[in-house]
Protein backbone atom coordinates (compact mmCIF):
# COMPACT_ATOMS: atom_id res chain seq x y z
CA UNK A 1 0.00 0.00 0.00
CA UNK A 2 1.21 3.54 -0.71
CA UNK A 3 2.33 5.37 2.40
CA UNK A 4 -0.51 7.90 2.32
CA UNK A 5 -3.16 5.21 2.07
CA UNK A 6 -1.59 3.31 4.95
CA UNK A 7 -1.51 6.36 7.19
CA UNK A 8 -5.13 7.24 6.34
CA UNK A 9 -6.22 3.71 7.19
CA UNK A 10 -4.28 3.84 10.45
CA UNK A 11 -5.82 7.19 11.41
CA UNK A 12 -9.26 5.75 10.66
CA UNK A 13 -8.51 2.62 12.70
CA UNK A 14 -7.34 4.64 15.73
CA UNK A 15 -10.41 6.86 15.41
CA UNK A 16 -12.73 3.86 15.09
CA UNK A 17 -11.25 2.08 18.12
CA UNK A 18 -11.44 5.23 20.27
CA UNK A 19 -15.00 5.78 19.04
CA UNK A 20 -16.10 2.24 19.82
CA UNK A 21 -14.46 2.38 23.25
CA UNK A 22 -16.22 5.66 24.01
CA UNK A 23 -19.59 4.26 22.92
CA UNK A 24 -19.19 1.18 25.12
CA UNK A 25 -17.84 3.12 28.11
CA UNK A 26 -20.55 5.77 27.85
CA UNK A 27 -23.33 3.19 27.79
CA UNK A 28 -24.46 3.91 24.23
CA UNK A 29 -24.18 0.23 23.28
CA UNK A 30 -27.02 -0.46 25.72
CA UNK A 31 -30.29 0.29 23.90
CA UNK A 32 -32.14 0.49 27.23
CA UNK A 33 -29.92 3.37 28.29
CA UNK A 34 -30.35 5.18 24.98
CA UNK A 35 -34.12 4.77 25.15
CA UNK A 36 -33.94 5.91 28.76
CA UNK A 37 -32.30 9.11 27.57
CA UNK A 38 -35.00 9.63 24.96
CA UNK A 39 -37.68 8.91 27.60
CA UNK A 40 -37.75 12.57 28.53
CA UNK A 41 -41.37 12.46 29.67
CA UNK A 42 -40.98 9.24 31.63
CA UNK A 43 -38.11 7.75 33.61
CA UNK A 44 -35.42 10.00 32.13
CA UNK A 45 -31.78 8.82 32.21
CA UNK A 46 -29.48 11.81 31.57
CA UNK A 47 -26.30 9.74 31.03
CA UNK A 48 -26.26 10.35 27.29
CA UNK A 49 -26.33 14.08 27.81
CA UNK A 50 -22.92 13.65 29.47
CA UNK A 51 -21.70 11.53 26.56
CA UNK A 52 -22.83 14.11 24.01
CA UNK A 53 -21.54 16.98 26.14
CA UNK A 54 -18.09 15.44 26.58
CA UNK A 55 -17.80 14.60 22.90
CA UNK A 56 -18.96 18.03 21.73
CA UNK A 57 -16.58 19.84 24.11
CA UNK A 58 -13.51 17.90 22.92
CA UNK A 59 -14.55 18.24 19.28
CA UNK A 60 -15.18 21.98 19.68
CA UNK A 61 -11.52 22.30 20.72
CA UNK A 62 -10.51 20.38 17.60
CA UNK A 63 -12.55 22.81 15.46
CA UNK A 64 -10.57 25.69 17.05
CA UNK A 65 -7.27 24.02 16.09
CA UNK A 66 -8.35 23.00 12.56
CA UNK A 67 -8.33 26.48 10.90
CA UNK A 68 -4.78 27.05 12.18
CA UNK A 69 -3.50 24.01 10.31
CA UNK A 70 -2.36 24.31 6.69
CA UNK A 71 -3.37 20.70 6.07
CA UNK A 72 -4.28 17.65 8.17
CA UNK A 73 -1.40 15.76 9.80
CA UNK A 74 -1.50 12.82 7.37
CA UNK A 75 -3.29 14.09 4.25
CA UNK A 76 -2.99 17.09 1.93
CA UNK A 77 -6.44 18.64 2.26
CA UNK A 78 -9.37 18.97 4.61
CA UNK A 79 -12.37 17.20 3.00
CA UNK A 80 -15.22 18.81 4.92
CA UNK A 81 -18.93 19.15 4.06
CA UNK A 82 -19.60 22.27 2.01
CA UNK A 83 -23.38 21.99 1.71
CA UNK A 84 -25.06 24.71 3.75
CA UNK A 85 -28.75 24.66 2.79
CA UNK A 86 -31.39 23.25 5.06
CA UNK A 87 -33.57 21.14 2.78
CA UNK A 88 -36.77 19.13 3.30
CA UNK A 89 -34.65 16.07 2.56
CA UNK A 90 -32.38 16.85 5.52
CA UNK A 91 -35.27 17.35 7.93
CA UNK A 92 -37.24 14.31 6.70
CA UNK A 93 -34.13 12.13 6.84
CA UNK A 94 -33.15 13.28 10.33
CA UNK A 95 -36.76 12.83 11.46
CA UNK A 96 -36.86 9.25 10.16
CA UNK A 97 -33.48 8.50 11.70
CA UNK A 98 -34.75 9.71 15.09
CA UNK A 99 -37.77 7.40 14.83
CA UNK A 100 -35.53 4.39 14.20
CA UNK A 101 -33.18 5.51 16.97
CA UNK A 102 -36.09 5.68 19.39
CA UNK A 103 -37.62 2.37 18.29
CA UNK A 104 -34.51 0.25 18.88
CA UNK A 105 -32.32 2.51 20.99
CA UNK A 106 -29.59 2.04 18.40
CA UNK A 107 -27.85 4.37 16.00
CA UNK A 108 -25.21 3.32 13.46
CA UNK A 109 -22.08 3.51 15.67
CA UNK A 110 -23.40 1.56 18.65
CA UNK A 111 -25.15 -0.88 16.30
CA UNK A 112 -21.83 -1.76 14.66
CA UNK A 113 -19.88 -1.76 17.96
CA UNK A 114 -22.49 -4.07 19.53
CA UNK A 115 -21.62 -6.80 17.00
CA UNK A 116 -19.22 -8.11 19.66
CA UNK A 117 -21.64 -7.54 22.55
CA UNK A 118 -24.99 -8.89 21.31
CA UNK A 119 -24.04 -10.36 17.91
CA UNK A 120 -27.43 -11.52 16.59
CA UNK A 121 -29.38 -8.38 17.49
CA UNK A 122 -26.60 -6.11 16.26
CA UNK A 123 -26.21 -8.07 13.01
CA UNK A 124 -29.95 -7.72 12.32
CA UNK A 125 -29.68 -3.99 12.94
CA UNK A 126 -26.59 -3.52 10.75
CA UNK A 127 -28.02 -5.67 7.93
CA UNK A 128 -31.39 -3.90 7.84
CA UNK A 129 -29.65 -0.51 8.10
CA UNK A 130 -27.62 -1.45 5.03
CA UNK A 131 -30.82 -2.48 3.20
CA UNK A 132 -32.35 0.91 4.07
CA UNK A 133 -29.29 2.69 2.70
CA UNK A 134 -29.37 0.65 -0.51
CA UNK A 135 -33.10 1.43 -0.93
CA UNK A 136 -32.37 5.17 -0.86
CA UNK A 137 -29.67 4.70 -3.44
CA UNK A 138 -31.97 2.68 -5.74
CA UNK A 139 -34.68 5.33 -5.48
CA UNK A 140 -32.21 8.06 -6.26
CA UNK A 141 -31.03 6.25 -9.37
CA UNK A 142 -34.62 6.10 -10.64
CA UNK A 143 -35.28 9.74 -9.86
Amino acid sequence: MPQKLTSEALVALVSGVLFGAGLALGGMTDPARVRGFLDLFGNWDPTLAFVMGGAVLVMAAAWLIQPRMIHPLFTNVFSLPKVRDITPRLVIGAGLFGIGWGLAGLCPGPGIAALVIEPVSAAVFVATMLIGMVLVRLFEKDA
Binding site: L96, F97, L130, M133
Partner: peptide, 9 residues
Amino acid sequence: AGLVVGVGT
Protein backbone atom coordinates in the same frame (compact mmCIF):
# COMPACT_ATOMS: atom_id res chain seq x y z
CA ALA B 1 -35.67 0.30 13.28
CA GLY B 2 -32.60 -0.64 11.26
CA LEU B 3 -34.44 -0.05 7.98
CA VAL B 4 -35.68 3.35 9.12
CA VAL B 5 -32.21 4.31 10.40
CA GLY B 6 -30.65 3.28 7.09
CA VAL B 7 -33.11 5.32 5.01
CA GLY B 8 -33.04 8.27 7.41
CA THR B 9 -29.28 8.58 7.68
